[in-house]
Design a protein around this nucleic acid. Structure first.
Lengths: 227, 227
DNA sequence: TGTACATCAGTGAACGCGCGTTCACTGATGTAC
DNA sequence: TGTACATCAGTGAACGCGCGTTCACTGATGTAC
C-alpha cells in the first residue's frame, strides 16, 4: 500500500491512523506482544521507523490505544444510559454496556483492563471518564436512599469488580457454560447491587451467621414485598 | 550451576524441578512471554534442550505450571475452610482464601486465570478440584435454604465472578484505593452472596424498579433482624 | 566379581526468525525573496 | 509569477538481541553375560 505524504501540519492524521491500525491488529492478534510496530506500520502503509515520528516507543503507542479504548467504552456506556433517569436503571444500563463492550471487544478489553498497563498514568483516564460516570451514578443511588450514604468510591469499586469479574471470566474462559451474555451479566450485576443495598440495610457487622439468620427471619413470617 | 545427572528412572524429579523453576521465574518476571525456556533451563542448572526431554514445547510446560497453580490454590482453599461446617462460613473461607491466593501470587494467578490458556483442556483442572469444591459448597447453601434450590452452577459462576473481579482488579490496578485486601474481599463476597440470596427471596423478575420498591418496603416499617 | 555393551539423560552448537530501535538519507512541501 | 532554499515527514538498510527449537553428539548409568 502506498500513501500520499502528509502535508506539513497534518501529523495528527497519521497518528490517528496508527492508533486505529494498532487497535485493529490488537483485536485480531491477541495480546500486546502479538502487536508489533512493524505490523502496525505495514497496516497503515508506512515503514516502521515512521511510527517513531508519532510515538516515543511501543509502550507509548499502546498507551494511546488504551486511552482510545477507554474513550470508546465511556461513549458506549453513556449512550446506553441515555434518557434513563432512575439511578438504578442508569446503573444497570452502565453495567450491561460495560460487559457488552468487554465481550464484543475482548482483545481491547484485555489490554485496557486485564493487563497491567505499561505506563500507570494512562489509568488516569479510568479515573476520569467511564469510571467517573459510574461513580456519579452510585452517588445518585445513595442520594435516592438505595445505598447507605457515604463515600461512593468503595461501592463503585465493588460493583466494578462484579462487572469486571463476569466480563473477564467470559473472555478468558469462554468454554464455560455461561449462557446468554446479557442475561448473565444482568443477573450478576443485579445481585451485586442488591447485595450491597441489603448489606447496608442489615447494617452492623454482616457475619455469615447474621446473614443466615436475617434471611430466615425474612422468610418465616412470609413477608414479601407489596408486589 | 552443575547438577548431577539423573539416574534412569528418576525423570520425574527433573520434571518437577523444571515446573518449580518455571513457577518461580513467572512469579518474578511477569507474563508468560517473559518466562523463556532458556531462563528456566538456566535456573534448574541444565541446558535448554533438556527441557524438551520432559515437555513437548513451551505451551506444554506452561500448562503444567497452570495445573500446579490450580492444585496449590485448591489446597489453600481447602485448608482455609478446614473445620468449618456452616455452609456460609465455608463459602466465605473459600472466597477469602481465593482472593488472598491471587493477591499473594499475582503472576501465578495471572497465567492461570487472567490469560487465555494455551491449551484449553488444562482448564479441566478448574472443573475438578478448586471449582468442584466451591460448587459443592454452593450446593450446601442451597440445601440449607440460603439460596433457592436448583442447579448450583450458575450461582457458583456468579460468586466466582465476584471473587475473580476483585482479585483481578486488585492485581492489575494496584494503585486504586482498595484498602485492606481481606476486608474488601470480605465485603464484596458477602454482598455477592447476600445479593443472590435476596434476589432469590424477592423472586420473579427482579427489575431495578422492583428492587427499589422492595428496599423501601424493608425500611419504612423499620423492620430489622432480631439482632 | 569383572567386562562389554546398550540405553538414554543431558550437551553444545547452531538454525532461522521477528522483534524494537537507530541512522543517515531523500525528496515533496511550503516559504522567502 | 518564478526560483532557490530550508524544513521535516517518511524511507531503506541495518544493528543487536533473545527467542523456541533442532540435531548430532557424549558419556554416565544400568544390565547381560
Amino acid at each position: 500500500m502506498k500513501r500520499r505524504r502528509a502535508s506539513r501540519g497534518s501529523g495528527e492524521d497519521l497518528r490517528a491512523e496508527i492508533v486505529a491500525a494498532a487497535k485493529e491488529l490488537l483485536a485480531k492478534s491477541g495480546s500486546a506482544d502479538a502487536m508489533s510496530i512493524r505490523a502496525v506500520a505495514d497496516a497503515v502503509g508506512v515503514t516502521s521507523p515512521s511510527i517513531y515520528l508519532h510515538f516515543a516507543d511501543k509502550d507509548d503507542l499502546l498507551s494511546a490505544v488504551v486511552v482510545d479504548v477507554f474513550t470508546e467504552l465511556d461513549a458506549a456506556m453513556l449512550s446506553a444510559a441515555e434518557g434513563l433517569t432512575a439511578p438504578m436503571e442508569r446503573m444497570r444500563a452502565f453495567g450491561l454496556a460495560y460487559v457488552r463492550f468487554a465481550v464484543d471487544h475482548p482483545e481491547h478489553y484485555r489490554i485496557a483492563a486485564l493487563d497491567s498497563c505499561p505506563r500507570p498514568n494512562v489509568d488516569e483516564v479510568l479515573a476520569t471518564s467511564a469510571f467517573e460516570h459510574f461513580n456519579a451514578t452510585v452517588k445518585q443511588c445513595m442520594d435516592a436512599g438505595i445505598f447507605a450514604p457515604g463515600d461512593p468510591l468503595p461501592i463503585t469499586l465493588e460493583l466494578w469488580a462484579a462487572a469486571h469479574g463476569i466480563a473477564a471470566l467470559m473472555i478468558t474462559k469462554p468454554f464455560l457454560p455461561w449462557g446468554d451474555v446479557e442475561q448473565v451479566a444482568d443477573r450478576v450485576l443485579r445481585a451485586a447491587a442488591l447485595g450491597r443495598a441489603t448489606a447496608d440495610l442489615i447494617g452492623g457487622d454482616v457475619t455469615p451467621a447474621r446473614v443466615t439468620e436475617w434471611l430466615a427471619a425474612q422468610k418465616t413470617p412470609a413477608r414479601s414485598p407489596k408486589q
